[in-house]
Simulated assay, not measured.
Amino acid sequence: MAGLDPQWLASLRASARLAPARPRLPLIAGDTVIGSVEPDFLSQIRLQPLSDGRNTLSKTEHSGRPAWRLLGEPTAALDALALALREAGLAHAWRDEQLAVADAQGQRIGSVERAVVRVLGITTAAVHLVGQAEDGRFWVQQRAWSKSNDPGMWDTLMGGMISGADTLASALERETWEEAGLRLDQLRAIVHKGHVDIRRPCDDGHGAGYVVERIDWHHCTVPDGQVPVNQDGEVERFVLMDAGEMLEKMHANEFTSEAALIQAALLG
């Protein structure tokens, strides 16, 4: 079996560490930086003022540079901001799913609708599970063609966002069932293997988005007789691939970049 192509791997890793396409300003909730936005992006919307007449959203200064400040209880203020972005056609596909919002120390201060995390440059968290059959082949999924991101591309056995109500452990359990129809106690040797970090521009908000994400990934053995079956409509099919076929599809960029980074870390 041929190994990972060094030039392809270098390009893949570089694509996960890209600067914003255009300058961005800090987004502050209260006194805490929670994300970033393009300088005039939030000028396209208007929010109702607070009960004391102060602007809920305004340009300000932070550490000697321009910034956007969002006042009020963070979750409520972010909910209002998300709805305004949706009405202006600046949100991604609406999911009615809240993701955690944290301060610089990683402490949760609130939550926000998933559809606006990219345009607001808010850090997100995800979990993936790499599953190998007992003969060494890999269980991989083809993403549903209806997915808003990377439709029809190959992915790990399971990959999903960590919601505002989740811990890493509960997200691993929930997503493994929803995407693959497998319970963790049906799997063997589940081990946390590491994480990959993604920072790159994206098309959300007509090109104003910026992805900042940490993906924790695990590896397991799927015992013979256990076959993944999708439960939530987000997977087209599951197949078994040997390492050679998987590498071929990775080099052809048929896997999502996140899955390729994870599989490359395992195979390398």
Rank of each mutant, 00 (worst) to 15 (best):
G106H: 12
Q141K: 05
T60F: 01
W145R: 12
A77P: 05
V127D: 04
V140K: 01
E234C: 15
W94I: 14
T176M: 11
A265E: 12
E258K: 14
F255S: 02
S170L: 08
A29L: 07
S36H: 06
T32M: 15
V140N: 00
A19T: 09
I122E: 00
G160M: 02
G160H: 01
A264W: 07
M161H: 10
V227Y: 08
A76R: 11
R54L: 03
P151R: 02
L50I: 00
E179V: 11
D40L: 11
S58W: 11
L47E: 01
I162G: 05
S51E: 10
V222T: 00
V229T: 12
S146Y: 09
T221L: 11
R108L: 09
A265G: 07
Q186L: 10
L70I: 04
M246R: 06
A243D: 13
G53D: 01
V37G: 03
D150M: 02
C220I: 01
G181C: 07
S148L: 11
E87G: 12
R46P: 07
V191P: 12
L266P: 10
Q226M: 15
R54D: 07
D96H: 15
S15D: 06
F41P: 03
L157G: 02
R69S: 05
A125K: 10
L78W: 06
T32H: 14
L70A: 03
D40E: 06
T221Q: 09
A19R: 01
T176F: 14
G160C: 05
P201M: 00
I109R: 08
P151L: 04
